[in-house]
Design a protein around this nucleic acid. Structure first.
Ligand code: FES
Ligand code: FES
Lengths: 131, 131
DNA sequence: ATTATATACGATTATATTTGTCGTATATAG
DNA sequence: CTATATACGACAAATATAATCGTATATAAT
């Protein structure tokens, strides 16, 4: 439990690779072959990051991706939520209803744990974890 | 991603129920029917907690479980690890080898994120999240 | 002693989630 | 015009989680 997904893992790899190669445009294939990541998944992952301006995309031959200045300022929470949606250890944290309709006795603990995690991730940037 | 399991959820419910009924022995069936939790799963979950002395078990008819004083002092990290094993957002945090044999460029970030989470969970007790 | 009821524990099945693949459309450099 | 790149949705495979089943053991009550 409490695992990150491959998508997040691949996104981290890609971002770090782009940061280390800021002078050139890097294609999905480049990263895919360099790290042994399935091309299509990596493509879709980078598309999500591009739509949030974490990276910039360029179409056509000689096209590819570039790192943006926004990366360093992005919090872990934003990064995770762009890729995987709301950060929540249980769905009830964001949903209206509770999973134990009649007699839920864990709302408080669940919320406290979740608040702690979100607070942690909101105060850590991608720059922080790269050093 | 970053979800807790039902086992942990059930364990939290059970622990809080036991704490609110410290004067009596509570059986698995009692908790199971009160919160709509599958009996066998709850049973095995409580067995794990019992073997770590988080709760105390009593066999035979009129038997059941009781909360122990250890609960309040138990950290979230210990609680999670009793039920689900090592807290790690990626398996490579504890394993010897790395998932990207040749060219891993995310060891540092993965470790930093994981250290942060473990630090958070090591400094939060079950008592902290219950208030 | 016998019975009923509780915990203890391993093996198996069902379900849900995650991961990966496939097919098609669009943009653009050469 | 063509080759190569991103963009995007639908589907299939693989994996992890959740739940069930079967059996053993302890013990209170009769
Ligand atoms: S189960 Fe989340 S609030 Fe009740
Ligand atoms: S993938 Fe975890 S250290 Fe390389």
């Amino acid at each position: 439990m409490l695992k990150i997904t491959k998508r997040v893992e691949y996104a981290l790899i890609a971002i770090r690779h782009l940061q280390e190669n800021q002078d050139v445009l890097v294609s999905v294939s480049d990263i895919s072959t360099a790290y042994g990541i399935p091309k299509e998944i990596l493509a879709k992952t980078l598309q999500k990051l591009a739509s949030s301006n974490i990276v910039k995309s360029y179409k056509g031959p000689t096209g590819g991706y570039k790192a943006t200045k926004k990366i360093a300022k992005t919090t872990l929470n934003d990064f995770f939520e762009i890729l995987e949606g709301p950060t929540a250890i249980m769905d009830c944290y964001f949903q209206d209803g509770c999973d134990h309709l009649n007699s839920c006795n864990i709302r408080t603990p669940i919320n406290k744990i979740n608040d702690s995690i979100r607070n942690l991730f909101n105060n850590l940037t991608l720059a922080d974890i790269s050093q």
